[in-house]
Design a protein around this nucleic acid. Sequence first.
DNA 1: GTTTGATATCGAACCGGTTCGATTATGACG
DNA 2: CGTCATAATCGAACCGGTTCGATATCAAAC
Lengths: 335, 335
Amino acid sequence: MATIRDVAKLADVSVSTVSLALSNPGRVSQKTLERIREAVQTVGYVVDPLAQSLARGRSRMIGFVVGNVGNPFFGDIRRELENYAIEHDHFVLITDSSGKPERERALVEHLSGLKVAGLALAPSGHGQAYVDFVQNIKMPTVCFDQKVAGIDRDFVGSDNRLAGAMLTEHLLQLGHRRIAFIAGPKHMHTASERLRGFMETMGSAGVEVNPNFIVDGQFTRSAGYEAAMRLLVQPERPTAIIGANNAVALAALQAMQELGFNCPDDISLAMIDDVQWSSVITPRITMVIQDTLKLGGIIARRILHRIMSPEGAADPAQDFVLSPKFVPGNSCKKL
Amino acid sequence: MATIRDVAKLADVSVSTVSLALSNPGRVSQKTLERIREAVQTVGYVVDPLAQSLARGRSRMIGFVVGNVGNPFFGDIRRELENYAIEHDHFVLITDSSGKPERERALVEHLSGLKVAGLALAPSGHGQAYVDFVQNIKMPTVCFDQKVAGIDRDFVGSDNRLAGAMLTEHLLQLGHRRIAFIAGPKHMHTASERLRGFMETMGSAGVEVNPNFIVDGQFTRSAGYEAAMRLLVQPERPTAIIGANNAVALAALQAMQELGFNCPDDISLAMIDDVQWSSVITPRITMVIQDTLKLGGIIARRILHRIMSPEGAADPAQDFVLSPKFVPGNSCKKL
DNA sequence: GTTTGATATCGAACCGGTTCGATTATGACG
DNA sequence: CGTCATAATCGAACCGGTTCGATATCAAAC
């Protein structure tokens, strides 16, 4: 590998001049600039990112930290971020915390050691210690998906209360009254907001909510399955179920199928967030989806803004909240 | 951040002794080792991975390069690799080439600049130029999933011929004769082997294959959809379809549903590789799956073997080929 | 023909470690 | 107690860049 000294020797200038020419071509005379560029070509010089990061105290990499890189929701966002980052000569380091706050913390520390220029973080924790941790991250950071109270960082996400409300309103319109809700972890903002959207909409419609119809699915397939089973074996069954996310909703569908219930004839189903093969799942589930591409675009632009411009670095934290979209399927029956 | 010099000062030894003590505790006296360890504690010293990599010419990171990190197949492998790597104090850099050889190349070069200790690579290209590229990678590399002729590297994958043969045999047993096959890109080893398994099994059973029943689905959803449509509008339709991967098979299912065919009553369907929510897709599709956990384990062990031991680095390239597993669903009808 | 100011270039220190040959301390042995 | 092998420690060079204060160059201004 050719080093900067090889270039300097060939172009007959000092090492510092080469460095200057490469990072700030304007501050070097036209003649030497050309000589240097020629030398770079002939020796095939490429800057060593490690050495550069060490000297600068910052790399050209952006850390991407999520709970599950396999989730298509995060996949779309990642792709947007990657494309935008490449355009601006940055590189995205993808990491997966498996949803565990300790692992997330270890990842962030590792990325910090790598001197990443910035961080796109989908928070997976809560509580004061967690808030302190995120607050103390030294690099430019954009949080997304999960809004955590007390964290004063840029946030990009969707209106989850609205998402819950949309599905509830839809089912109410179809004549449903006994609507059950498989919720997510109470401490997660997305989960509590979606539930709030459900409760508020039911409330303003003057429909009483059977407390047995609110079950906890933990946003996971297994807990969602159990929660759905609890709903389905009640003497007074719901006529419709809302899954607070895709995992619990599909787990509910599975539970229905196993117990011999037909969806939507026996029970209607609706969910928040898409899954990859939703179009071949029978029935096609009515859902509310997030605009992942737009979310990803905003995250990308925001973080690179913070990284690249001095005024961006000083910008106060800002929230970007997008409205989700209703996508009708055929999993909800008119009563 | 505390540096190694702070530690040296506090422990009253030279910087080189600290470095030695940390990387090779046995070569330092008990007394000084303790003093150094104490100093490390009190100043809170953590080695700077960037500086270390620069000096050593190698980092403690392993590059993971695949065409689609969202694919659960790669996800399982990634997780296994990550867990094993963490146990051995290494860190996995996940990257996504979107299946584009040029992007893959750029990623590998980037990782090479980062001086990664090793590479787990799911090849996405073919042809001489591509082979040369992979051959010229300087770091320890384990290829997986896609076997590319001419690449002399460790390879970990499944017996794809067998996978194709298993599904074909199953359908023959059920009495099917007019079996169609939605194939993948001819240049991909997995695709051609799966097709070969189909052809050979049909051949040995003495069943003639209608050339119109072999269509190209490119392993993608959209091409698979079109290919399936071509099959379904023929006057003489197949009684069963094998999808060479999950994407084309599910696309075929979608096409059937849209045209009003019932699976399995009208047409049977089988596929290679699982998808995330296969259990809620109706019908549950009969499939042959790869043992992703075992594959991931082998990849992880192999690459860390190469990285960590001098004799491992010198090991000749080796192939590890696992047998896939048959998972019956209810998408194939007895004729 | 100086002085002044801007522009171009350079040298040296630094980022934070590793490595290896040289030097010193230790202790076993005759 | 001197000798010598071995163990412990050190200093300096190096990895490949960046950065900043200092110096050299040159033209315009007085």
